[in-house]
Write a protein that binds this DNA or RNA. Structure first.
Lengths: 149, 149
DNA sequence: CCTATTGTAACAATAGTGGTTACAATGGGT
DNA sequence: ACCCATTGTAACCACTATTGTTACAATAGG
């Protein structure tokens, strides 16, 4: 099964925050973010709650606005991936839990797979760690500059 | 969400086949494999069907037995990963499908994420490609040799 | 031809996802 | 001090995937 789109939506939301200019653009509400993502505002608020819990954004209730707590360059996609908990930490692969201990394969398969699966997952996470929100935001800005509008 | 345990079960089943000695051990039926995995025989047969479709095993109906079609050294965990279709090819991450094209971020986010997510997925697959069924089987045999039995 | 086994359909229970409505709590602006 | 737009959160729905289960026709070895 696929990794939930919560992750890509979270990156989308953070990109909006990174490129947002409060002075010109006004308040960036969950409603406006939902308009850009094309979903329901509650979906956005749920994700903002996760990002807040992870310390990536500050959300001031009521008409307080939402802000990044760090520079976009200091937020990696891995931070977002962990924040959205699309995968419980360290467990991308699920392994059948109760193999038969009476069988030589059954009693050793978990240990035999453990290391390999951990490494595969770590390789994926390294790639995500190597990309910052700033890079995503700059990429969007660059594409926009040469856009077909 | 996690990657289905179909993958780990498939590796388990293939390890059983790799370590199976028809002469001594007799017929390795879906029932016996299910006993080792600790699940229902139909679950095993469904997975064997996928492995067969991928050309990794030959299953002779009735009392014909099941066999690997290649040397364990020539079967990588990536082959198994693809065979079990735990992830539709190339789409480990799901990205929200309908961002708002009227928004600069909305109309560029998919392209901005595409490359990064592809690379992260590719990194994971490279790790799986680097491990063969033979390595898993040898690892199991080694652990068994020093086992606490 | 018998019989163990496979292949497959059908169904249930469970869980995660994404969307929706509803509403109490919050706090900035006037 | 009070509006009122906004957030935080619970509750619910529809949908999908997963895993286990029963049932049974098709298969082929002995």
């Amino acid at each position: 099964m696929q990794i939930s789109s919560r992750f890509s939506v979270a990156v989308h939301v953070l990109a909006l925050l990174a490129l947002h200019r409060p002075a010109q653009d006004g308040l960036l509400t969950s409603e406006r973010m939902a308009g850009s993502v094309n979903t329901n505002p509650v979906v956005i608020r749920r994700i903002l709650g996760q990002l807040k819990k992870a310390g990536l954004v500050e959300v001031r209730p009521a008409s307080g606005g939402t802000f990044l707590t760090r520079e976009p360059a200091a937020i990696s996609l891995l931070d977002v991936y962990h924040a959205t908990e699309v995968v419980e930490a360290g467990r991308l692969f699920s392994v059948h839990e109760q193999p038969n201990p009476a069988c030589p394969v059954g009693r050793n398969i978990q240990a035999a797979l453990n290391d390999t699966l951990r490494q595969a997952q770590a390789a994926l996470e390294r790639q995500l760690a190597a990309v910052s929100l700033q890079q995503v935001a700059l990429d969007i800005a660059a594409k926009e500059a040469v856009g077909v509008d």
